[in-house]
Simulated assay, not measured.
Amino acid sequence: MFFFSVLPIIFSVMIAFTNYNNTHEPPGKLVDWQGFRAFKELFSLSQWAHTFFGVFTWTMTWAVLSTFTTFFGGFAVALLVQQKGIRFKSLFRAIYMVPFAIPAFLSLLIMRNLFNAQFGPINSTLLKFGIVGPEWLSDPFWAKATIVIVNLWLGFPLSMLLIIGILTTIPRDLYEASEVDGASALYKFRKITFPSVMFSLSPILIGQFAGNINNFNVIFLLSGGGPTNSEYQFAGHTDILITWLYSLSITNGRYNFAAVISIFLFIIIAIFALFSFRRTRSFREDDLLR
């Protein structure tokens, strides 16, 4: 735990207070302590500050969209599969789990080729019907929309599987009693199904949101952070904080700025996780049971 978790955290925090970059890199040149200089420059220099707040805004937007689309997408599929009269439920569940079973690395690389605006089969198919497809990964808006859609395809199976498991544990007596009282399907969903699912899955949903803030693979493998944004420092339109951190450190050697961003990432996720978990009903009721 110390060598693989604690020590790297301490090391990365210490880097933020130095001038460790591509011009001050051991063993050629030693680094010097700079105090809070990197923090000040990140927020005082206009282009750096503009980049940070722009990337931060998209990071939060991405985390919200990716979490809720995968959750409610899985919720919708779970409800459809569990409907009365649906035959071959096991087969449908197995088919819908295919995106989750295939390694995301392969799926994202394939999707990148599918959404290629010049040579991809999606735009080629649309062109046969007289429709000129958009620049999926070259236009800022469509690049963000494409990332959310692909992430939905990758992420909904897990939510579906979890929700199906919860749906099978809800007592049928509740639905039968509500039917006797003349409750509609929407009312049963609002008062029975949705609260039961949220009570069990809210901690997982919070964890998924925190994980999507650091969802490196989808952004890096699908769009690479692009398209390029001339107003940003070493960041593209679809870069989130974790991919910008990677670009700053690995590609451009700005290790001190990357360390500063990693500290802010930790603070953001820690505050959100602590606040959300403390307000989650499942944990509060668990404390009461103790």
Rank of each mutant, 00 (worst) to 15 (best):
residue 126 L to H: 05
residue 129 F to L: 15
residue 129 F to Y: 15
residue 130 G to R: 09
residue 130 G to N: 10
residue 132 V to Q: 15
residue 132 V to N: 14
residue 133 G to M: 13
residue 133 G to C: 15
residue 134 P to K: 14
residue 136 W to E: 03
residue 136 W to Y: 12
residue 136 W to F: 13
residue 139 D to L: 06
residue 140 P to Y: 11
residue 140 P to G: 10
residue 140 P to C: 10
residue 140 P to M: 13
residue 140 P to L: 10
residue 142 W to Q: 14
residue 143 A to Y: 06
residue 143 A to W: 03
residue 143 A to I: 14
residue 143 A to E: 01
residue 145 A to N: 15
residue 145 A to S: 13
residue 146 T to Y: 00
residue 147 I to G: 03
residue 149 I to E: 08
residue 150 V to Q: 01
residue 152 L to M: 14
residue 152 L to R: 04
residue 155 G to I: 02
residue 155 G to S: 05
residue 157 P to G: 12
residue 158 L to I: 08
residue 158 L to N: 04
residue 158 L to K: 02
residue 158 L to T: 07
residue 159 S to W: 12
residue 159 S to N: 14
residue 161 L to E: 08
residue 161 L to I: 13
residue 161 L to V: 14
residue 161 L to G: 09
residue 162 L to N: 03
residue 162 L to F: 08
residue 163 I to Q: 14
residue 164 I to R: 11
residue 164 I to Q: 10
residue 165 G to R: 11
residue 167 L to D: 06
residue 168 T to K: 15
residue 168 T to Y: 15
residue 168 T to Q: 15
residue 170 I to P: 01
residue 172 R to E: 04
residue 172 R to K: 11
residue 173 D to N: 13
residue 175 Y to H: 02
residue 176 E to N: 04
residue 176 E to L: 02
residue 177 A to E: 08
residue 178 S to V: 03
residue 178 S to H: 01
residue 179 E to D: 13
residue 180 V to M: 12
residue 180 V to L: 13
residue 180 V to G: 07
residue 180 V to R: 06
residue 182 G to F: 13
residue 184 S to M: 09
residue 184 S to K: 03
residue 185 A to M: 06
residue 185 A to R: 13
residue 188 K to I: 00
residue 188 K to A: 06
residue 189 F to A: 02
residue 192 I to W: 00
residue 192 I to K: 00
residue 194 F to D: 07
residue 195 P to C: 07
residue 195 P to F: 03
residue 197 V to K: 01
residue 197 V to R: 05
residue 197 V to A: 05
residue 197 V to Y: 02
residue 198 M to G: 04
residue 200 S to G: 00
residue 200 S to W: 02
residue 201 L to G: 01
residue 206 I to D: 02
residue 208 Q to W: 11
residue 210 A to R: 02
residue 211 G to N: 13
residue 211 G to A: 14
residue 211 G to C: 02
residue 212 N to T: 06
